[in-house]
Design a protein around this nucleic acid. Structure first.
Lengths: 149, 149
DNA sequence: CACTGTATGTCAGACTCCTGACATGAGCAA
DNA sequence: TTGCTCATGTCAGGAGTCTGACATACAGTG
C-alpha cells in the first residue's frame, strides 16, 4: 500500500469523474456546433435568450457560466451580426434586456437540435429512473458546494 | 405553451446541470488552491504524478483534460521551480517520464488535503449508495458520449 | 528495405476568458 | 437629504489555453 491516506484517489473520485464527464460533453457539443460556426458559449447565450427573453448581460453570463465581461464581448458580436438586439439606452437602471432577432431564432434552431441529439446520445443506456437519480445527485452536489463557504 | 418542441429545457437538462456542477466544483477548487498559489491544472498535474509516477507529458495532458501543449508549458515551469524532474534525454522514443521531487510532493500534500475537503463537502448529504449510483451514471454518460461518433 | 500510420515533444502565434478597476444607477436605512 | 451597499455595463491588461506546425521515433505492412 503505497497510497497516501490524505489524498484523492483519481480512480474512484466523483470530482474527477465529474470533470471527465463535463469535458466529454463539451467536446461532443463543440463537435456538432463547429460546423454551424458556433461555440458552446455562443449557443448557450442564444438558448438562454430563447427560453427567457429579456435577460440582461449579467444574467446571461451567470447562465452560461462565464464572466459578464466575456458575455459582453459575445453579445456585442451577436448584436453586430444581427442575432440579438438590445436597446441603445436602459429604460431603468443600467440593465439592457436582450432579445433574439428572427435571424437569431433561426440560427438557434439548428444548433438546438444538434445539441439535443448529443444529450440524447449521452443518456442512452440510462433509464428514466436513473436519469432522475443522477439529476438529484448533481443538484445535491451543487448545493453542497455553494452553500457552506 | 410557448416552449419549442425541438429544444433543450435548461431547467430539466442533465447536460446543463452537469456543466453547472462541474463549474461549481472548479470554482470551489480554485478558491482553496489560490491561497496556495496553485491552479487546478497545476494541482491535477502533481496529483497525477503522485499516483502514477513516470507519466509522460502527453499522458498528463490527457489526465488533466488539457492539450499536451498546455501541459508542456506547465511542466517546464514546474521543472524550473523544482517541483518536477524529467530526464534530459529520452531512454526510448521521445517520451520523457516525469517524477515529483520531494519539494513537489510536499507542495502537493497541502493542496491535496484542501481538495479532498472540497470533495467531502460536495458529497455531504449523499449516502454511499447514492454516490455509487452517481458514479455509475457519470461513467455511463462518458462512455455513451465517447463511443458513437 | 521503404512506406504508412500513429504518437510524442516542442515552438510560435493567436485566442478566449479572467482579474482588476472604474463609473453609474437602484434600493435601503439613518 | 446623505450615506452605504449591491448590481450593472464597460474598459484595460494579463494569465492560461488553444490551434497550427514541425521534427522525430516507434510499430506495422507492403
Amino acid at each position: 500500500m503505497s497510497k497516501r491516506d490524505t489524498g484523492v484517489d483519481l480512480d474512484t473520485s466523483l470530482g474527477y469523474l465529474l470533470k471527465e464527464a463535463s469535458t466529454a460533453l463539451r467536446v461532443a457539443m463543440e463537435e456538432v456546433l463547429r460546423p454551424l460556426g458556433m461555440t458552446v458559449t455562443h449557443y448557450s447565450c442564444l438558448e438562454l435568450l430563447a427560453q427567457r427573453p429579456g435577460m440582461s448581460n449579467s444574467e446571461l453570463a451567470r447562465g452560461a457560466f462565464v464572466t459578464r465581461q466575456s458575455m459582453n464581448v459575445l453579445l456585442q458580436a451577436l448584436e453586430r451580426d444581427g442575432y440579438v438586439t438590445r436597446p441603445a439606452e436602459a429604460a431603468v437602471g443600467k440593465v439592457l434586456p436582450a432579445q433574439l432577432t428572427p435571424r437569431g431564432r433561426q440560427s438557434l434552431e439548428e444548433a438546438s437540435a444538434a445539441v439535443r441529439a448529443v444529450e440524447v446520445r449521452m443518456l442512452a443506456g440510462m433509464t428514466e429512473d436513473e436519469q432522475e437519480i443522477a439529476f438529484r445527485a448533481l443538484r445535491s452536489m451543487i448545493d453542497s458546494l455553494r452553500g457552506p463557504a
